[in-house]
Each structure stands twice: as structure tokens, then as C-alpha cells.
Amino acid sequence: MHEPEFVAVVREKIVVSDGVVALVLGHADGTPLPSWRPGAHIDLVLGDGLVRQYSLCGDPADASAYRLGVLREPAGRGGSAYVHDTLSPGDRILVRGPRNHFELEDAPSYLFVAGGIGVTPLLPMIAEVDAGGARWRLLYGGRTRPSMAFLDVLDRYGDRVLVRPQDRHGLLDLKGFLEEATRDTLVYGCGPEPLLAALEDACGARDMLRVERFAPKESIHDDRDGMFEVVLAQSGLTLTVGPGQTVLECVEAAGIPVLSSCQEGTCGTCETDVLEGTPDHRDSLLTEDERAEGTTMMICVSRCLGERLVLDL
């Protein structure tokens, strides 16, 4: 069975801090939304191949609304900018999920660590844990206090929440915070990569940490792109594909006519048979099986996992 996918309608859009808006979504046809548990996230399908993941931060018992917090990411590829600048109440938007890779496990006590917008999945966790009577504390860091979202929601928990904006308090004191951990405490962390790395360090070998990272989605050119060799079997040419170059560009530069169209791995026009070598697939067309087989590739975006590819060109 395919995971849920449905059209939602934006009911509300509220600015909740500098750079963060909260969205309230309902099912477009008014029916109850798929159920979820704390830690879950959904995909917003924004069009143009843009899919962004956002944690649900509302109340799982409320099947009429999903709440999410969206940070404007200056370096983002446009997903968050679109949500901030264009998406408006009444707009319809495609939603996939929810799914959960950050399940709340049972424990007698919890420590939560949030960095910036990473607070969102923790909010429903905290609500549930608090209602269940477990012991818990939250350490919440951010750039500046005005940039930190949902402080009003957290207000009612009093001093179980430590709000630590970096401009006043410096880096989070993870070591000190974790001193409260007992043998059966679970630590839940969500935030930027350096924070999560520091948290992993601080927890050491103890299996008490649960984190969520949103892996940055595919990018066509990235810093790790290395050089590799491409042999064109039919033309008998050997070419070197440089870091900033695509196989397609390189083949064309060598004067071999090849068809291409979208040049972003979405149309299939440049598909080329691979005779040897392992492609690093970056297209949005091939199935998992085809990727694993590796006998064909979209040369406008895909690269090489080894040092050499032989293509049927």
C-alpha cells in the first residue's frame, strides 16, 4: 500500500518568531487527517520537483489540523522561501505522509535538546510525556531569543524548559545538562548538524540518544563531486569529466552529438547505456532496481561512483 498522499488546504499562516512561520493545514475535502504520533513529519510537495519535510508540532489527537513550523532558510533552494513569501491561507498543497523516523519510546525520564527550528518535533513529545507524568527537561538553544519559535507554547512548563539563546549564553552546555541523566533516561535531540554531533559526543557510548536529522535532499552539483574518466566505446574516445562538469557537457564538448532536453534528470532524453563502471545516479527517473543494475544512466546529472565509466556512445 502506498503511503497517504492528499491535498491539504492552508487554514492559517502565522509568524511565530523572526524567520519562522507556523502553518495550519486541514484536509481539502474536510475529512479527518491521517493519524500520527509525536516525532512524525510530512512532505510538502511544492512543485518543480521541490519536496520539503516538516515535523508535525501540533496535537496528535486533533485530526482536523496539522501544525508545522517553517524556518526561512537563506541558503535554501526555494522551498522555505516559497512557504514564507507565496503560500497563503486558502491555497491547496499536496501532502505526503505522515511518517515517523523519530518515535517516542517509553521511558521514566527524558531529556530533550532542541536547536532552533529543531524544537518542532519535540513539542508533541513533550506534551505527551508531560501528560503521562514522566520526568523531563528541555534545553532549547537558538541564535537570539526573538528567533526562537514556540516560546509561548513552552511557557506553561515553567522551569523545566531552559531557553538559552546563543547571543546571551554562548554554546549550549550539553555536558552540564546531561548530568541529570539517569540509567534509564532517553535523550531526544533535533537541530543543526553541529549540535547533533556535539550531542553524540556528550552522550558517548551510552545508548540513550535519539536524534532526527533532515538529510539535505539531492543537489545536482556538490562539493564532493570528483573527477572521473569516461570512455566512449563507439567513438573510441577517452574523456575526463571535471568536478564542475556533467558527463553530457563533456561528451558534447568532445564533438559527439547526443540528445538532451531538461538537463536536470527529469525527462529521460539523455539516457545512455553503461557498459562498464558504476554510475552515481542523480536523476529522478530510474527505479531502485534500475539504479542497482547500473546498465543505464542519465548523463545530464548522474556521475560515477568509481573512477571510470564506459558508455555506449
Binding site: 498522499e5 491535498v7 510537495v45 511544492l46 512543485g47 491547496r92 498543497i93 499536496l94 529521460g268 539516457e271 527517473l285 530510474l286 527505479t287 534500475e290 543505464t296
Partner: peptide, 21 residues
């Protein structure tokens, strides 16, 4: 238009996949 377009388009893209063609 999206979002209605998006989901049916994805289905059609799978129907007319490179492997199928």
C-alpha cells in the same frame, strides 16, 4: 495546476517510465 496536477503526473511518469518505453 499543482497540487492536483502533481500526483497524477507522477503516476503517468511511472506509467511511461524509461524502462517501459
Amino acid at each position: 495546476d499543482p497540487p492536483d496536477h502533481t500526483r497524477v503526473r507522477e503516476v503517468m511518469t511511472e506509467v511511461l517510465s524509461s524502462r517501459r518505453v
